[in-house]
Structure formats: structure tokens, C-alpha cells
């Protein structure tokens, strides 16, 4: 499916380039990528601004985004970020921040879709069910599959891990050797952090490459919980 969509994209940009490059004057100095952008925007009809409050929220419930379109967008995000950072830590922090913005929205929308019509909408207040719901529901909503595992750290009581054997966000990314510490899944980590924060479990979430023989792009999302969360969980016991 992804490949067919990609071919559609490339053929349309080709045709628009043909249309808009007359053999004469203006085509020579224009950037080759510019025409495809202008054709996409320019309807001659009077512009009716859509109102966000008129759009039903469930319309896109089962809609899927083309993997190639996402890969393209994400590669631009990574390139944009790379130009503006000094080191790997900074790089990951920025990706994390971008993911955080997505996460706050994912959480709210996901819960609204399941609980919005219920008579008594509920929110998660215990940590472990919240973690499982990230592993199942958030991953399903965002990546279309559940994560591949949840683990609790043996050494530290405040550390939990979500494991994804083949993260969608980094599927088409090959990190150069000099940046080998970098994990672009920091974006996902930010998303998880936002969901936990929203539910009232402040934590620091980071992403780490943990490849194994079967899964070379296996990634671990490490959740280090704030002390207040553990204290609160104690009270529930």
C-alpha cells in the first residue's frame, strides 16, 4: 500500500512540473520543487475557512496515514532538528519536546473516543493500568499495533520499560555511525511522557537502542518515574 501511494505522489509532482514549466521565460529561474507546492494550494474558488468546531472528531477514527508520507515528514523533522542542535542530548531533547506536543493530544482524543459517549467517563488513576493502556491503546492509536513488551527494571523500582521490536517512526531511518548513540524514538518517548504527565504520573522518558539478533532496530522506551508517583502508589496499597 505504501509503495502505491508513493508512486501517486511522485507522478502528480511530475505532471505538475510539466504543466508549469513553459519552454520560455519563467521556468528557468524557478526552483524545481516550487511548482508542486503552488498547485496544491491554488484553488480559484473563494476561500471558505473551515471551522474546527464543525468537524466531527470521530471522522478520522479509523483513518490511516500513509507510511511513506509519515516517513517523509519525519525525515524532514529530523533534518530540521539536526540543523539546530549542538549534540546528541540536545537532539533527543528536541525530538522529545515535539513528541510531547503530540502526546497531550493523543491522550485526550483517545480517551474521548472511548469514554466520550459513556454516562460516567473515567480516567486512569493507577500507574500499572495506565502503563498497560499506553502499551496497548496508545500504541494501537498511534502506530496501529501494540508494543512488543513491558518490563519492570530489576535494579530500580522506579524504572519501567516499553519495548518495540520495530518502531514505525524509525523504520526508514539509518543513523550514521558518529551519531550511534542517537535514538530517533525520542519522539515516541516524548509522546509517552506527555501521556503519563497528563494522567498525573510525572516521569522522565528516554529512548534507547537495544538491538538483538532477531530485531536489529529494537528500541526500549525507558520510563523513570518521579518519586511522587511511587509515594502515591504506596497509598493505594
Amino acid at each position: 500500500m505504501a509503495s502505491t501511494r508513493f508512486s501517486v505522489l511522485s507522478s502528480s509532482s511530475l505532471s505538475s512540473a510539466e504543466l508549469l514549466s513553459p519552454t520560455g521565460s519563467s521556468g528557468r529561474f524557478s526552483l524545481p520543487s516550487a511548482p508542486s507546492i503552488t498547485t496544491a494550494v491554488g484553488p480559484s474558488k473563494p476561500l471558505v475557512r473551515p471551522n474546527i468546531y464543525d468537524r466531527p472528531l470521530n471522522k478520522t477514527r479509523s483513518a490511516e496515514v500513509s507510511a511513506s508520507a509519515f516517513a517523509f515528514l519525519f525525515s524532514e523533522i529530523v533534518q530540521y532538528t539536526q540543523k539546530r542542535v549542538g549534540g546528541i542530548n540536545d537532539f533527543e531533547r528536541r525530538l522529545n519536546t515535539l513528541g510531547y506536543r503530540i502526546g497531550t493530544r493523543v491522550l485526550e482524543l483517545m480517551i474521548w473516543r472511548t469514554e466520550g459517549s459513556s454516562k460516567a467517563p473515567k480516567r486512569e488513576i493507577r500507574f500499572l493500568p495506565a502503563l498497560m493502556s499506553i502499551h496497548n491503546n496508545v500504541w494501537k492509536a498511534v502506530f496501529g499495533k501494540t508494543a512488543d513488551g513491558v518490563e519492570k527494571s530489576v535494579e530500580n523500582a522506579d524504572e519501567y520499560m516499553i519495548i518495540d521490536n520495530d518502531p514505525v517512526v524509525t523504520r526508514s531511518i539509518s543513523v550514521p555511525r558518529e551519531l550511534s548513540q542517537l535514538s530517533c524514538s525520542s519522539f515516541t518517548a516524548g509522546l509517552v511522557e506527555a501521556v503519563l504527565d497528563g494522567l498525573g504520573f510525572p516521569a522522565r522518558v528516554t529512548a534507547h537502542n537495544t538491538p538483538n539478533v532477531d530485531h536489529p532496530s529494537r528500541t526500549t522506551i525507558l520510563i523513570k518515574l518521579d518519586k511522587s508517583v511511587l509515594d502515591r502508589e504506596e497509598l493505594f496499597k
Binding site: 480517551i111 469514554e115 480516567r123 488513576i125 497528563g198
Partner: peptide
């Protein structure tokens, strides 16, 4: 109350003189 109960709609959480306060807490707090 939000830390103890899992409902989003908090019915009459507080009272002051003639006022009753009801609240609703979204998943994102």
C-alpha cells in the same frame, strides 16, 4: 478527589455559602 477517584465528573466537590462547585477533569488534567 482526582487522586482518589477515577471518574472525570466530580459532582459537588465543594460548597461555599450558597454555591456548590462541580468539576470535570479531562484525561489530560
Amino acid at each position: 478527589v482526582v487522586r482518589r477517584e477515577n471518574g472525570m465528573y466530580l459532582k459537588a466537590v465543594d460548597k461555599f455559602n450558597e454555591w456548590t462547585i462541580s468539576a470535570f477533569v479531562t484525561p489530560g488534567n
